[in-house]
Design a protein around this nucleic acid. Structure first.
Lengths: 153, 153
DNA sequence: ATTTAATTGCAAATGGATTGCAAATGGTGT
DNA sequence: ACACCATTTGCAATCCATTTGCAATTAAAT
């Protein structure tokens, strides 16, 4: 029927294209459960890192909060999700495309908590200097910026 | 007596020179209490950031753990102490010289947790670029490095 | 010494995150 | 469709870092 078709088409456009993640999930023997699907879908809609509780609220308590924690930890382990720390003691998470280089940073408004993604990064040349200087190898870094956004200043 | 004088002399060299901090503390109307003195002294002996619990153990339970937390929070508020976050959910603290620019970073061994101080910093020129790019002002950053130290690699 | 507000110790509370366990479930083969 | 079974969930309890309420203590000024 027409309405059915239209609704279906609308759904198609609204629905996140999660095939990439779902395929990998199932190919590793893990189950595509309702909570995991809903959480993946919700993560895919976000434009900045969110907390476990925000996910829980965002999916209108579709599953237990503990299952959000467990799903997120799983997603981190299999490389679906990246964790960020904005210094307030609450972990934040972002869905990443499997295989792609997802390394980036954020700037957080100290007043209204607005978050913008930052593509600038700590220079490789300096990392090499630190490598030589300290004797450390396989160096990574965590870097987040803080400041007043244009509206709060 | 000679032994007395020697011990005294030894004590003098061992004892931390906390006058700078103590003066400021008292000039602001705050009390120099036994816990605060002991904690200051212990912090002064450290060469990298330590947790509240490490302070508590390090001063052999000379005061309550809650008082360590309260003293550290006070020290942060009056600029005696700087907080660092190594990503394990436990806050770490370092005594800083009042008034001096104490901005620096660390590299942490992901294997043995060894910590080395890093003086290299995120370039100012890039920070200015981010300022223009995002419209944010008064930008600061948190930056920590992780890797394998020479002994663990 | 006396006074007084700041500070402490203690125990309880808070809050993010983890976990044990019985019940539910999804993927596989029949 | 059905049955199997390891995985996963919901629920409640627990953990652990940190904070807090309050009565007792204490530093420092009078």
């Amino acid at each position: 029927m027409q309405t059915e078709e239209l609704r279906c088409c609308g759904d198609f456009h609204e629905r996140a294209n999660l095939d990439k993640w779902i395929e990998i999930l199932q190919s590793t023997g893990l189950k595509l459960t309702a909570p995991r699907h809903v959480i993946l879908e919700f993560l895919h809609k976000q434009s900045h890192p969110i907390t476990n509780r925000e996910i829980y609220n965002g999916i209108s308590n579709d599953c237990d909060l503990a299952s959000v924690y467990r799903s997120i930890n799983l997603f981190i382990k299999i490389g679906f999700v990246q964790q960020f720390d904005f210094g307030d003691g609450i972990a934040r998470f972002e869905l990443i495309e499997p295989g792609l280089d997802s390394h980036h940073h954020h700037i957080v408004c100290t007043d209204c908590s607005k978050v913008i993604e930052i593509d600038h990064c700590f220079p490789n040349s300096l990392t090499e200097t630190i490598e030589k200087h300290t004797g450390f190898s396989r160096i990574t870094h965590k870097l987040e910026f803080f400041g007043l956004c244009s509206e709060c200043k």
